[in-house]
């Protein structure tokens, strides 16, 4: 056990699974980096933010495959390799680039098992960075997990901390279905205690990072940290919150979300993705349908406006949900009860 960054936790998960299973291979743009350059230095980058650094040096060219900038071909190749005996982990760099290879994910990988009558296994992981907060602007900042969650046949993972990232990535690699694993690029330097040994965190089991009586906050990925921050502040004012980190949006741990709402009677959902048809709407629909009687206040969604992610820092700050906005949403659902009672 030692403190590890989100980046190190992912690197360690990849390394340990590559050691465990020779069928695990890495495919992606610049995941080593430097091949064909004039210096002769390979493993120059280890991915655009250094997450796969060292793995080419350790495992060599038969396990770590740099690709041309050619998402359709190499994501498709990862799908084909997964269907024929390898267990590839492909890095899509920025999830925004899925526009260049959605067919390989949506029409191929996701559908093989069903279309082929249950005969296919496609043990594929696609890792990609998501999220705003990096001044990366509209084409490098999206939180596209609802897009993947919408597609039957895919599993979608959004780790909220280094510990979670390692365990969930190991689970993803061992899983026999195609998994989209989304890493918030702002979190790579976040640190916490992470076991040195390999471990797997099962999919479809939400994690309660706070437990309280008044309000349930369901948050995804990086938003879990903001929700925790808000919950800790609110606690001082006597408002106690449960914070639910679903970990995976597909499968979604509906049972835990419903139980928490049954307990608290109030729900705030924090979702960094664009607000139309996102996870917040999905969770809101779930609760409205199955826990309607438990609700003491309207469900509140905290998210960005329905715009592309802006570039300028001042606008990006306005765009992203933060602890203060979560806090005020919680206070508003608490206040709702009071007005009702007074009336």
């Amino acid at each position: 056990m030692s403190k590890k960054s989100f980046r190190q936790a992912i690197n360690e998960a990849l390394r340990q699974e590559m050691l465990r299973d020779p069928r695990v291979v890495l495919i992606g743009e610049d995941i080593a980096g430097g091949q064909g350059g004039t210096s002769g230095v390979v493993d120059a980058w280890g991915g655009v933010l250094g997450v796969t650094k060292g793995l080419y040096t350790e495992f060599g060219p038969d396990r770590v495959f740099d690709t041309p900038i050619s998402e359709a071909s190499y994501i498709g190749a990862a799908v084909g390799a997964a269907a024929t005996g390898l267990r590839p982990v492909a890095e899509l760099m920025f999830v925004d680039f899925v526009g260049c290879c959605l067919d390989q994910i949506m029409n191929q990988a996701a559908k093989f098992r069903y279309m082929f009558g249950g005969k296919a296994r496609t043990p594929l992981v696609i890792r990609a960075m998501y999220g705003a907060g990096f001044n990366a602007a509209a084409q490098h900042s999206q939180a596209l997990y609802p897009l993947f969650t919408h597609i039957p046949g895919l599993k979608v993972v959004i780790p909220s901390s280094p510990y979670e990232a390692k365990g969930l990535l190991i689970e993803a690699i061992r899983d026999d279905d195609p998994v989209i694993f989304l890493e918030n690029k702002v979190m790579y330097d976040d640190e916490e205690e992470v076991p040195d040994e390999p471990y797997a965190i099962p999919f479809g089991e939400a994690n309660l990072t706070r437990e309280g009586d008044d309000v349930t906050i369901v948050a995804f990925g990086r938003m879990v940290n903001f929700a925790n921050e808000a919950a800790d502040r609110l606690e001082k004012d006597g408002i106690s919150c449960t914070v639910v980190d679903p970990r995976t949006t597909s499968p979604l741990d509906s049972a835990t979300i419903l139980e928490c709402v049954e307990d608290t009677g109030r729900l705030v959902i924090v979702d960094e993705s664009s607000p139309r048809c996102n996870m917040a709407t999905d969770v809101a629909a779930l609760v409205a349908e199955d826990a309607f009687d438990a609700l003491k206040a309207p469900i509140r969604r905290v998210g960005p406006p329905h715009t592309p992610v802006p570039f300028a820092t001042v606008l990006e700050k306005l765009y992203l949900p933060d602890a203060a906005r979560i806090e005020s949403a919680v206070r508003s659902v608490m206040a709702y009860k009071k007005t009702k009672q007074e009336a």
Binding site: A81, A83, Q104, F116
Partner: peptide, 24 residues
């Protein structure tokens, strides 16, 4: 590896299958 309803769906998959043959 399947007939394919998407025109151009097969060639990337075949790169992957060929990679499997090569690695395995």
């Amino acid at each position: 590896l399947g007939a394919n309803g998407i025109v151009g769906g097969g060639p990337p998959l075949i790169c992957g299958a060929a990679l499997s043959h090569k690695v395995l």
